[in-house]
Design a protein around this nucleic acid. Structure first.
Lengths: 160, 160
DNA sequence: TTGCTTGCAAATGATTTGCACTGCT
DNA sequence: AGCAGTGCAAATCATTTGCAAGCAA
């Protein structure tokens, strides 16, 4: 059960990863940016993370990254539509792969420790929300591009 | 919000204002804070504003406020549950009166100029959302306290 | 008097940027 | 060769804080 036990996961992972890598490579190329090892490390760090993470957390998971380059590349990746920056109350911004590379989702945010976890709403509810937003936006003269739903609370670890 | 005992908007407004003032006074007192003229000016500025505003905007509407005192008092008012701080992508935070002094609502945010406007969802939809959040939060071990729904887009003024 | 408030100036700290160097292509 | 990418150190800028003076109970 040892030598072959993980093979299917790995194959799947490799395929999925290479598709992701190609998509990212193309987006960067569209913006005349190279997909360098430092940028790959950032993407890998975000992909491995269990939800959106801060820059210090990213550096911890990839110690060879220089702080300024990581910040600079996160901004470039954001401009290229590869990364999304989340700004909540906590001191550091959180970063995750763009929804166009993963899937539409929302966030659960711990008000005590700042932890952010992903959640998804069911499609029916999402459609209802979209319809409401379109109507409301029309009344206000807005052209809506996207929406966020954040649920604040206290996570299990912080619940004393 | 309707007592039915007032025949004009002006009278209603005066009464509503004094009720608001008393509620705020009480909350500050609970936190052993005084309701000084500077703090009144902040509350008035927020009340007069057409939605959440930034600190520079607040100072513009009440030029006698000192920047540091305004920041300090906004934080204290936030701690006392009188003010809510909104942190989006824009450079400055936005401030508004707490929902417990007004009513539950959400925001439309212009990605171009940073303008924030209030919107409300209908009660049925809010209840549906709350139910979903409770379920999701339970699965993740979170205890939800509140939620935000932000609709991003481009406002009429910025639509060129 | 006691201690909350205030305004000024200085500090803080996350993020950004200038610049010289490295390394693809 | 030529130009994008990197890392260091320095700069930025919204926000916070120390402190001495003002004011209310």
């Amino acid at each position: 059960m040892e030598s072959g036990s993980h093979s299917s996961d790995i194959v799947f992972d490799v395929v999925a990863t290479s598709e992701l890598e190609r998509a990212i490579h193309d987006r960067l190329a569209d913006h005349e940016l190279r997909y360098t090892s430092g940028r790959r490390a950032i993407v890998e760090g975000l992909r491995r993370a269990d939800g959106p993470i801060t820059l210090p957390e990213l550096l911890e998971s990839s110690p060879d990254l220089a702080q300024s380059s990581a910040y600079r590349n996160l901004s470039l990746l954001e401009d290229a539509g590869v990364v999304r920056r989340l700004v909540h109350g906590s001191e550091h911004a959180h970063f995750e792969l763009s929804e166009s590379l993963t899937e539409h989702h929302h966030h659960l945010i711990c008000e005590s420790c700042g932890l952010v976890r992903d959640i998804t709403l069911d499609d029916t509810l999402e459609r209802t929300l979209d319809r409401s937003f379109d109507q409301l936006a029309a009344v206000e003269g807005f052209r809506p591009t996207h929406h966020t739903v954040d649920v604040y609370g206290v996570c299990g670890d912080c619940e004393s």
